[in-house]
């Protein structure tokens, strides 16, 4: 069970600051997988990061009554100059556990990542594919109660993707999942409940389909009409549907670009990290 109480979050930048998340109160029950949906910049990733504990709220708190993972497949948390084995050992130690447990985790990651001898090479020599397999394996090595995933299944080559999806699906039985994905299919497949984030506020839906519906319904009401009313005086209502479709297309295009950029940025940051180390 994860409790979110009176949570506020904002980022400071030079335009001043607005609340990204306002007064969020949620209780995510045990063993219920949840999908986070909302428009871009609505604060999905922020909320996910807050739940994962990678960021701290400005007000309010997140109480984790269960063991929550770090975002699955996170590959920034490696020391480039140390070998894969040493990195796994480090994470296993941080998660606590006996000597046998640490050995088990190492064995699991070695088997899952399928990177062979590279396991004993410094992480900075890994290709991005190896790195993501390694990172994914590390996430799955521990039996967390709750897994956090931010587009996690979208890493690696196609074969590995299948394997990851399977492993994930397997886990869903024992533990729950909190994920952000732009693919509604994945959400429907893996999640039961949904949280729809809009204008910094979060709404809980016991059924993921309801949340997705709410997300779709929010379009005409909130953003486009207001905008259109302001900009265009004589608006041809018949063209509305096509305009919406076009916007949707542009949005998807933008999203893809953004994801690509994010990926590139992550890789660059990792290299930078290795430089520090």
């Amino acid at each position: 069970m994860i409790e979110i109480k009176n949570l506020y979050k904002r980022y400071h930048n030079h335009h001043g600051s607005d609340w990204v998340l306002k007064n969020i109160n949620l209780v995510i029950p045990k063993c219920v997988s949840v999908g986070l949906i909302g428009r871009n910049g609505a604060g999905k990733s922020t909320l996910l990061q807050l739940i994962a504990g990678m960021d701290t709220p400005d007000k309010g708190e997140v109480i984790r009554h269960s063991r929550v993972s770090w975002p699955v497949g996170l590959s920034g948390g490696f020391q480039g100059s140390m070998t894969g084995r040493q990195n796994v050992k480090f994470v296993a130690r941080v998660q606590g556990g006996s000597r046998q447990e640490i050995l088990r985790v190492i064995a699991f990651v070695e088997r899952f990542a399928e990177i062979g001898d590279a396991f004993d090479e410094p992480v900075k020599t890994y290709s991005s594919g190896m790195r993501s397999r390694f990172a994914f394996g590390l996430s799955l090595a521990f039996d967390f109660d709750v897994y956090i995933s931010d587009e996690a299944t979208a890493v690696g080559d196609r074969l590995f993707k299948e394997k990851a999806r399977e492993a994930f699906a397997e886990k869903v039985g024992q533990s729950s999942l909190i994920m952000v994905s732009h693919s509604e299919g994945v959400l429907k497949e893996l999640c039961e409940a949904g949280i729809f984030i809009n204008d910094g506020e979060a709404q809980w839906y016991d059924d993921i389909n309801e949340a997705i519906d709410a997300y779709h319904n929010s379009y005409p009401v909130v953003a486009p009409i207001n905008d259109l009313e302001k900009s265009v005086d004589s608006f041809d209502f018949s063209g509305f549907v096509s305009a919406k479709k076009e916007m949707e297309k542009a949005r998807i295009n933008y999203q893809q670009k953004r994801d690509k950029y994010a990926q590139l940025r992550d890789i660059r940051n990792e290299r930078l990290n290795d430089g520090y180390a």
Binding site: H65, R67, Q86, V91, D143, D145
Partner: peptide, 25 residues
Amino acid sequence: NYKVRTSWQVTWSVWHAMFMREILA
């Protein structure tokens, strides 16, 4: 079965892990 650890246990694990890492490095 993992249990939620107390913050003291977590702190100890983190320090232990980091210490081993640093000393190895």
